[in-house]
Design a protein around this nucleic acid. Structure first.
Length: 382
DNA sequence: GTATGCTTTCGGC
DNA sequence: TTACGGCCGAAAGCATAC
């Protein structure tokens, strides 16, 4: 699961009892807002950024919608054809997602934030945690001033609004940034933490998705305060130990997850939607080739080798199956990537009794091609 | 039992 | 009525070594 189960490991964090001041910044309806900034005529109209899969003219899903589009029920992940129906006659604009463009904007914004905080941890293209315990002196009023500066600088430099939350833990900061949107600033000082979190549905907690909600519902838990009353042992019977501890602490506003500077990317992947469903792994492979070219270009430009290769198949019922192999030596050449991917895809097809709708390839266990040392050593080291 | 590494699945955006 | 992307990080589950 995508929970940051890292220990509280900042120097001095245990030695002194200083209350932590943690923030979360989220760029509002990011892709669609970038499009609005680029074309101000779009403002006030429904704007929908779409991933067109290319299978048919309208196949694909909604990535991001601005608030005007959301008024008409447009949501992320919705099939484009559904969104079109809902927006008929509404003077809406559908725009194909251009990820590289949003990544460039994101990099500039994140740099602005990074230079204003003590510790910076980006967790997505449009969001990041930050720790300002030291620079705020543990004072939430001073912290608010820093948060305002962050929001203002993003707006001045890029014309983008953002929503920021401040709290004593990552969970509180994340929920707080989500509290008022768009262009929000929500400060939850330590003494307000319990009353802030308690009434919320558990789904609002960072890392609690539909599956976890369903399991908790089976335990009679619907709100954060109800979750807070469940013992770790009881949670552990339904979840793993770490998750049980995390859920318990998160609900009590006492999770000890630290903001930690980002490490190197640990995996790269590319996926495509097939022109038609198929069981034929070679047909799928040939459609995957352009994506593999893109992936290989990415690896080569970054001087990256990999040891683990994974073929990914999404069946017609959208279920996901994977097959992977870890090699003894780092790989960077295109021919090995090609050959091994084709083999894995064939094995995957042989083990699944369904047609594929989408296929993909992932590389992980990365290292630096230059010196073949692990990237972590490379960046920590000399 | 504990540590470690690999494969598969899950969940977020 | 249905319809349906492309990434990422990390946990669970399992195997192996000692």
């Amino acid at each position: 699961m995508a929970w940051p189960h890292n220990a509280l490991n900042q120097p001095g964090a245990h030695r002194n009892r200083l209350v932590r001041v943690i923030g979360h910044v989220d760029l509002d309806y990011f892709y669609a807002q970038v499009e609005e900034v680029e074309n101000p005529l779009l403002k006030g109209k429904p704007v929908v950024v779409c991933v067109f899969s290319g299978r048919t003219e309208d196949s694909g899903v909604v990535s991001t919608a601005n608030y005007k589009a959301r008024e008409f029920g447009i949501k992320s992940g919705m099939p484009i054809i559904v969104a079109k129906r809902k927006l008929e006659g509404r003077d809406a604009t559908l725009i194909p997602m251009l990820r590289d463009k949003y990544e460039m904007v994101s990099e500039r914004v994140m740099q602005l934030v990074r230079e204003k905080v003590d510790i910076f941890e980006q967790t997505g293209i449009d969001e990041a945690f930050f720790d300002i315990t030291t620079s705020s002196g543990g004072d939430f009023s001073a912290a608010r001033t820093i948060a305002v500066k962050i929001k203002n600088s993003i707006c001045l430099a890029e014309g983008l609004t953002s929503s920021v939350g401040l709290g004593q833990t990552k969970v509180v900061a994340k929920v707080a940034s989500d509290w008022m949107k768009p262009d929000g600033l929500t400060v939850v000082p330590p003494e307000s933490t319990v009353e802030f979190l308690g009434p919320l549905p558990v789904a609002r907690l960072y890392g609690v998705g539909p599956k976890t909600v369903q399991i908790l519902d089976g335990l009679g838990v619907g709100t954060v305060s109800e979750l807070a009353r469940i013992s770790v042992d009881e949670l552990q019977r339904k979840f793993g130990r770490k998750t049980a501890v995390y859920l318990h602490d998160a609900a009590n506003g006492s999770d000890q997850e630290a903001v930690t500077a980002n490490r190197e990317t640990t995996q790269h992947s590319r996926m495509i939607t097939l022109k038609r469903n198929t069981r034929d792994s070679d047909e799928a492979f040939s459609e995957l080739l352009p994506a593999m070219t893109d992936l290989h270009r990415r690896l080569a430009s970054g001087g990256i080798s990999f040891r683990t290769l994974t073929a990914i198949g999404i069946a017609t019922d959208l279920s996901v199956r994977t097959r992977s192999k870890t090699f003894d030596k780092p790989i960077s050449d295109r021919s090995t990537l090609n050959d091994q991917t084709r083999i894995l895809l064939r094995e995957l097809a042989g083990s699944v009794d369904k047609e594929f709708r989408r296929v993909g390839v992932r590389v992980s266990t990365l290292s630096n091609t230059e010196d073949q040392r692990p990237l972590t050593d490379f960046y920590q080291g000399a």
